[in-house]
Simulated scan of single mutants.
Amino acid sequence: MTTSSRKVCFVTIGATAPFDALLSNVLDQPFLEALKKHEYTTLLIQYGKEGQAIFDTFTKNNPSGSPGRYDLDIQGFSFKSEGLMQEMRSTKANPAQKVVEGMILSHAGSGSIMEALRIGVPLVVVPNPALQDNHQEELARQIAKNGWAVVGKLDRLTESVQKAEKLRISSRSWPPRNSGALKDSRGLAGVVEDELGFLD
């Protein structure tokens, strides 16, 4: 990656249930350091309705250019009624604009996961342990089992960055070469679009 290239990590906390633990962890030194190590330049966070205080405290304590930002351009917003597709697409490679492929880190809401899978970049899914039932955990485990995403753990979030890089490599071989007539060059993203009837 050249020094002028852009590599985006987009984090979505969700719009309904607060997930302060995830927000705090992505703004913590180990995660930011891991992003820098893997040549990310931008951290874009959708911090939800209740996360602004955490985000504002971080930016106040770590103004632009300070060591605590690890040379990352860190931006955030609470909610967008039109959805998050534009932000998710900012993680896709765009050689004309010197953008290299980044990653999406998402809470384990089914809507966010399905949108992220359409993009076709590495996806890390972090279930919210504060929720009463375990449907997020079950969903995250299943998509990881299928090789479509990485399940992130709050106490080991830095590992997710490395696992996302490995997923980037392995996903490029999907579908398997021995899959006969199944030769969809759009990979998993194309299958998701076809199965769910998405039209762009």
Rank of each mutant, 00 (worst) to 15 (best):
P176A: 15
L123T: 05
G48H: 13
W174A: 09
Q29L: 02
A116R: 15
L123K: 10
K145I: 02
N61G: 12
T57P: 01
A116S: 15
D194E: 14
D73H: 03
N61R: 06
G102Q: 02
G190Q: 05
H135Y: 10
N62C: 11
V191N: 03
I119G: 01
L117K: 04
P30K: 00
F79R: 02
G51R: 06
S4R: 11
G51S: 09
A34Y: 09
D71P: 00
R118Y: 00
F31H: 05
T41Q: 12
G68Y: 04
H38M: 06
D56I: 04
L35E: 06
G83M: 12
L72V: 05
L196Q: 12
L35W: 00
A15P: 07
T57E: 11
A164P: 14
A140F: 03
T41Y: 04
G152E: 03
T57H: 09
V150W: 04
L117P: 01
G76D: 01
P129Y: 00
S66V: 07
L123R: 06
A130F: 10
G187Q: 14
S160I: 00
L117Y: 04
I74S: 06
V99R: 15
N94L: 10
A15T: 15
D28V: 06
T2R: 11
L117H: 03
A144S: 13
K166Q: 12
R89S: 07
L182C: 05
L105S: 12
S4L: 13
S4E: 14
S81P: 01
T57C: 04
K36Q: 12
D194H: 06
S185E: 08
S160L: 08
R6A: 00
S160W: 02
L44S: 05
P63L: 07
D155W: 05
L199T: 13
I113D: 01
N94K: 13
A164H: 12
A149Y: 14
V121N: 02
K49M: 10
A108F: 09
G65N: 14
V126K: 02
A140N: 10
R141S: 13
K153L: 10
N128A: 08
N146Q: 14
V26Y: 05
M88C: 07
F79V: 02
V99E: 14
Q86A: 15
I104Q: 09
G102D: 03
V191W: 12
A164K: 10
L182W: 10
L43Y: 10
W148K: 03
S112V: 15
H135G: 08
N62D: 05
A17M: 14
K98D: 14
A116P: 07
F55C: 11
Q97R: 15
